[in-house]
């Protein structure tokens, strides 16, 4: 791996089993993930709804406590931290949420929304904070003149910019972007993607970019992890993943994405998956994908494949490849 592993901006996951209450044994929303995120990179996390991608993002930030495993951000293990110690760590990791309507308090002005993280972390005096909010609004492409307005006076794309400004307020190094554009209209999506890319360059940010849209993830990520039913099925460099997808689920997922070009669409062969994603409360025995896999073998229904590296940085968990 040619990227330098930077101690203070690396989130590391050890077998992390997060269970949600539900049923006597609990739902394994995320099951045994192992991955690193390197400083300054964007790791894309894709998967269908209910595959545990948002849970993963939230578990990294300790918004859910994992039932097993460790999360290291910038060399510090987070899962054992509590109270004040954890709060101090949160300063370097922030989150941008999916729904720009639900994630901003309708009774707070833009100014107080964006300055709240700074208040929580005791940064600056009141006038310094206001100055910083103005600066942040400018950075995300909003007029600083709007500082005393309320969220309902803004459109979805502008609200998402407010959410981005709030995440930037405490100068974090790591941001979890949880489907930041899927609630936005097509022409607004590109605005927010471009903004996130510019900010990454400007402030040397590290992103975990969670999305279900593979075209967007391809555009923004350096490496991509594909999740299915709580597990990572494949993890590889962006171009490697799209050029040479190993896991049958990744292959099907890529072939299902429509390409906005009728000439290309005419020639494409689709792998249409049968059926639906099984319930995470009752995952199948063996490989989680065995119920829908077009290349399923007997062993897949018996034993779980190991998540292994095949070629530099290309990991997958599948019985099609030597274990």
């Amino acid at each position: 791996m040619n990227r330098r592993r930077w101690w203070h901006e690396c989130a590391e996951h050890d077998p992390d089993e997060r269970q949600c209450a539900g049923g006597p044994s609990g739902v394994k929303a995320v099951d045994g993930l192992n991955f690193d995120i390197y400083a300054g990179e964007t790791l894309g996390l894709v998967g269908e709804s209910g595959c545990g991608k948002s849970t993963t993002g939230r578990a990294i930030l300790q918004l859910y406590k994992p039932t097993e495993g460790t999360v290291e951000v910038a060399g510090k293990e987070l899962t054992k931290l509590q109270g004040e110690d954890l709060r101090k760590q949160r300063r370097q990791m922030q989150m941008i949420f999916q729904d720009p309507y639900a994630s901003l308090n309708p009774r707070m002005t833009v100014g107080s929304i964006v300055s709240e993280p700074m208040e929580v972390h005791n940064i600056g005096t009141k006038s310094e904070r206001i100055e910083r909010v103005r600066e942040l609004l400018k950075v995300v492409g909003l007029n600083p003149y709007f500082i005393n307005r309320y969220p309902h006076e803004f459109s979805g794309g502008q609200r998402q910019r407010i959410g981005v400004a709030r995440a930037l307020a405490v100068n974090p190094s790591f941001i979890v972007c949880d489907e930041p554009i899927s609630a936005l209209d097509v022409s607004i999506q590109a605005q927010v993607i471009n903004l996130l890319e510019d900010l990454q360059e400007q402030f040397k940010l590290t992103y975990l970019f969670i999305a279900h849209d593979l075209s967007v993830v391809r555009h923004i990520s350096d490496r991509i992890a594909v999740m299915y039913l709580g597990k990572i099925m494949e993890l590889a460099d962006r171009d490697e993943l799209y050029a040479n997808p190993m896991h049958p689920y990744t292959q099907a997922l890529l072939s299902a994405v429509p390409i906005p070009d009728p000439v290309v669409e005419e020639k494409r062969k689709r792998i249409i998956l049968e059926g639906d994603v099984p319930s995470p409360a009752n995952p199948p025995k063996g490989c989680n994908f065995c119920t829908r896999c077009p290349k399923v073998m007997d062993v897949c229904r018996e034993q779980e494949p190991v998540f292994k590296e095949y070629g530099s940085g290309h990991y997958t968990a599948c019985w099609l490849y030597p274990q």
Partner: peptide, 24 residues
């Protein structure tokens, strides 16, 4: 033209900045 330019494509071969339509 703006809409088509603002779509990231799965089969994109090179990095490019998306041409976004500004405003509302």
């Amino acid at each position: 033209i703006g809409l088509l330019g603002s779509l990231p494509r799965l089969d994109a071969t090179r990095e490019h900045r998306l041409s976004s339509i500004e405003g509302l």
